[in-house]
Structures are given as structure tokens and as C-alpha cells.
């Protein structure tokens, strides 16, 4: 029998996922987010006479500021849900449609199936995480102008420097969400239940955030998934301190390798009864 490594080509997997309502829903939410933000600001702009300028005031300074605000607002939950959906749902949804067994019997090697699924989930996550800032920047630029980014301490980051910073931020967000993706993925492979995978990953991050708020835990907190979630803000200082981002990325990659390794190990031995 000839070597067959072409099973489940990425193109095929992308088509499988692209036409799903879930995928379309996520991208719709991302496309709507900046519009919703701008609309909300427009509604609330007359009401603020509390004095000190808040993040919301700052967000309306420029498209760049709107991007940072949107990322800030979505880091703790939206991005986690998006990534958890893409990565966590991909295997158990096939199991729940009973199509997993037909893919495996097609045959698609199990490690290859996981690999292709992971790559495509990664591609969709990248697309979502690139689309969010890019689209927000575009929309925000038209709404609030193309001025420089103005930080909470009044530091300015002009163009094209801000573009580079945004690329660093997006890259870091992607790596830091690897822990979410791999946990959701592993959970999905383990349980065959899409809800368990996505919900479990989101729950993990919420629990982790709760533990993270207990300062008495001290240094252990640094190992909690999501502890370094906001480290990307360091990329908005006049000079970038990469320490926290690098540390966060390392933790995330470490967890990612372990969790994906466990998922593959389990899936290779698993009896497919779905």
C-alpha cells in the first residue's frame, strides 16, 4: 500500500470548520465588537462629569487607543472563549456528530487527525486574534482618527512604532492563550463533549483568576494559567520590558506541550466508541 500522508488535508479541515455556525458566530462577534464599543461610547459620552479621565475617555483618543481598550476588555474572557471554542470543540464535535469514526476509518491516522485539527484551530485562532485588533484599528481610526497611542501615564507611541507594538501584543496574546487552547483541546479529546471542553477551559481560567487574586499564595501564583495574561501591556511602555511576556509565554508553552502531549497520548490509545 502506498504511503498516504495526504489524509485530512488542511484545506478539507478548514472547510469542515469554516461553514460552522460557531465559526461564523465568533467572527461576527469580533466584527461587531468595535462597532458596539463605539456605539456605547457615543451613547455615554455626555454623562461623564466625574472629573478624572477614565479608560473609556482614553479609548476615544484614537483608533490605536480603541484597539488597546478592546484588547484590554477582551483579554480576560472573550479571547479565552474564542480560543477555547476553536481548540476545544474541534474533536468532540466530530465525536458528537458521529463523524469522527468515519474520519478515522477513512483512514486518517489519529496523530494526523489531531495535528490537522490543532493546526486549523490554531489558524482560526490566529485569524480571530489578528482580525480583532486590525478591524478595531480600522474602525477606530475612522471614528476617532489615526493619532498616536496615548497611554494611561500620558506616554505616546506614534506610528509606525505602534504597529510593531501591536504585532508584539498580538503575538504574545496568541502564545499566552496556548494554555487555554491546549487545555480545551485535551479536555475535548478526553471527554468527547464539546461543552465540557469549552466550559472546562473557561472555568479553569476563572478558577485560576480567583486563585491569582489571593496574594497570600505568593510565588505559586506565577504558575497559574493566565497569571501573565495582561503582560502584553508591558509592550505599551516607552521601552518594552519583555520579561513578563517571555515568562508568561514560557509557562504557556510549557503547559501547552504537556497538555497536548497528554491529549495525543490518550487519543492514540483510546477506543473510539462515539
Amino acid at each position: 500500500m502506498a504511503e498516504r500522508t495526504k489524509a485530512l488535508p488542511l484545506r478539507a479541515e478548514i472547510r469542515r470548520q469554516l461553514r460552522r455556525r460557531r465559526t461564523q458566530g465568533i467572527f461576527t462577534v469580533i466584527m461587531l465588537l468595535p462597532l458596539i464599543l463605539i456605539g456605547a461610547f457615543a451613547l455615554g459620552s455626555e454623562e461623564n462629569d466625574s472629573g478624572a479621565r477614565g479608560f473609556v475617555d482614553l479609548a476615544q483618543d484614537s483608533g490605536a487607543n480603541l484597539v488597546v481598550f478592546a484588547l484590554f476588555a477582551s483579554t480576560s474572557f472573550l479571547l479565552i472563549v474564542v480560543v477555547a471554542l476553536f481548540a476545544g470543540d474541534t474533536v468532540p464535535s466530530e465525536a458528537s456528530w458521529s463523524s469522527l469514526r468515519y474520519l478515522l476509518a477513512a483512514p486518517v491516522r489519529r496523530e494526523r487527525l489531531l495535528r490537522q485539527k490543532l493546526i486549523v484551530a490554531g489558524l482560526f485562532s490566529v485569524a480571530a486574534l489578528v482580525l480583532l485588533p486590525a478591524w478595531t484599528l480600522l474602525v477606530g481610526g475612522f471614528a476617532y482618527g489615526w493619532g498616536p497611542y496615548i497611554g494611561p501615564t500620558g506616554d505616546q507611541i506614534g506610528w509606525p512604532e505602534f504597529g510593531w507594538r501591536l504585532a508584539v501584543i498580538t503575538g504574545y496574546l496568541l502564545v499566552s492563550l496556548l494554555v487555554v487552547a491546549s487545555f480545551a483541546f485535551a479536555l475535548g479529546v478526553w471527554t468527547d463533549a464539546p461543552l465540557a471542553a469549552v466550559g472546562g477551559a473557561v472555568l479553569l481560567m476563572i478558577l485560576s483568576a480567583i486563585l491569582d487574586s489571593i496574594t497570600a499564595l505568593g510565588g505559586i501564583r506565577e504558575g497559574l494559567p493566565g497569571h501573565y495574561a495582561y503582560a502584553w501591556a508591558d509592550a505599551l511602555s516607552p521601552t518594552v520590558d519583555y520579561s513578563a511576556m517571555a515568562t508568561g509565554a514560557l509557562w504557556s508553552v510549557g503547559y501547552g506541550v504537556v497538555l497536548i502531549g497528554l491529549a495525543v497520548w490518550h487519543f492514540l490509545r483510546k477506543d473510539i466508541t462515539s
Binding site: K6, P9, A12, R19, R21, W97, S98, S99, R101, L103
Partner: peptide
């Protein structure tokens, strides 16, 4: 193989499902 009932992507048409399956075989 046809094992223990069919398994299709519910959001695709029958035609697209057959194509998607065949694409997956590479």
C-alpha cells in the same frame, strides 16, 4: 464502512458531506 448509524456534519448538505468526507481521505 458504515458503523452504528451515519455520521454527518449537520450544517452541510448531503452532497457537501460526501465531498467533505472524500476530501478527508485525501
Amino acid at each position: 464502512a458504515f458503523i452504528e448509524g451515519p455520521g454527518f456534519l449537520p450544517h452541510l448538505t448531503g452532497w457537501a458531506n460526501l465531498q467533505a468526507y472524500w476530501q478527508a481521505t485525501g
